[in-house]
Design a protein around this nucleic acid. Structure first.
Lengths: 132, 132
DNA sequence: ACAAAATGATACCAATATGGTATCATTTAC
DNA sequence: GTAAATGATACCATATTGGTATCATTTTGT
């Protein structure tokens, strides 16, 4: 029951570092010199971020990554979604046999409220606000 | 990344039903007649709830369960904690090498704020409010 | 041309959490 | 004494998470 997994955590740190490089291409080698992350795992994460349009990549010697979009437009909620899908704090109980059950629905309404609020807050945290 | 797992879900439904029985001893047989839950799984859940002091149990024929404490004093947050441990939305990054990292801490503060709020809300939902 | 250094793609593996099953022991009511 | 209930415990299946390994491709520098 974690909002921030290793993947998200590594991704945030790497993106912050790349953002601070201000357009200079940053390689995985440089990132693992800076952070304590397993190289192949980080590579996989960066590849996913590239496919998701968060990073741009450059192959070949002196290759690496830059931001594909401004740091201000990258939100923590986006990253969580990329690695773990939509934020769903409770399963959809409506598919169950007893979906009309008052107890379940009364609870679902309240969990949904919490969920919406959490999602909104995560959507409000962008990478730019984590820099410096 | 679910707040309400199957265990918690089944537990809540079962506790609500037992609460509505108003002191009458309720057996597993009766519960699975009412709800669509796997018998051995539910048994395990109820045993844990008994050990946790939420339910009282009665062995032997005509045995079963009653509430050990009033429905008003059983909170959803308690149940989540029983089955999944303390609600921790982010891992403790302070143990990591780069714990003094500004980015990480800036994020941690914000995640912690969300976490505290979620925990408080879950702590405010008691079983009594889900009855009828 | 070629080697080095980088990412791209992909397959695989280990640990953990979750959801669930099965079995036997013990207790109690009739 | 038997049936019906919980107590205890061991086991299993699946999904998720975290991580490794390998080879292909691209680019730079000589």
């Amino acid at each position: 029951m974690r909002l921030i997994s290793k993947k998200t955590d590594y991704a945030i740190k790497a993106i912050c570092f790349i953002a601070e490089a201000k357009g200079r291409v940053v390689s995985v080698a440089e990132l693992i010199r800076e952070f304590d992350m397993p190289r192949p795992f980080l590579r996989k994460i960066l590849q996913i971020l590239k496919k998701s349009g968060i990073l741009k990549s450059y192959k070949g010697q002196d290759g690496g990554f830059t931001l594909a979009i401004p740091a201000r437009e990258i939100f923590v909620a986006n990253l969580i979604k990329i690695f773990h899908g939509p934020i769903k704090l409770s399963r959809c109980v409506f598919k169950e046999r007893l979906c009309s059950d008052v107890k379940t629905c009364a609870l679902k309404v309240r969990i949904d409220t919490i969920e919406t609020r959490v999602a909104r807050e995560l959507q409000s945290i962008n990478i730019e606000s984590l820099l410096k």
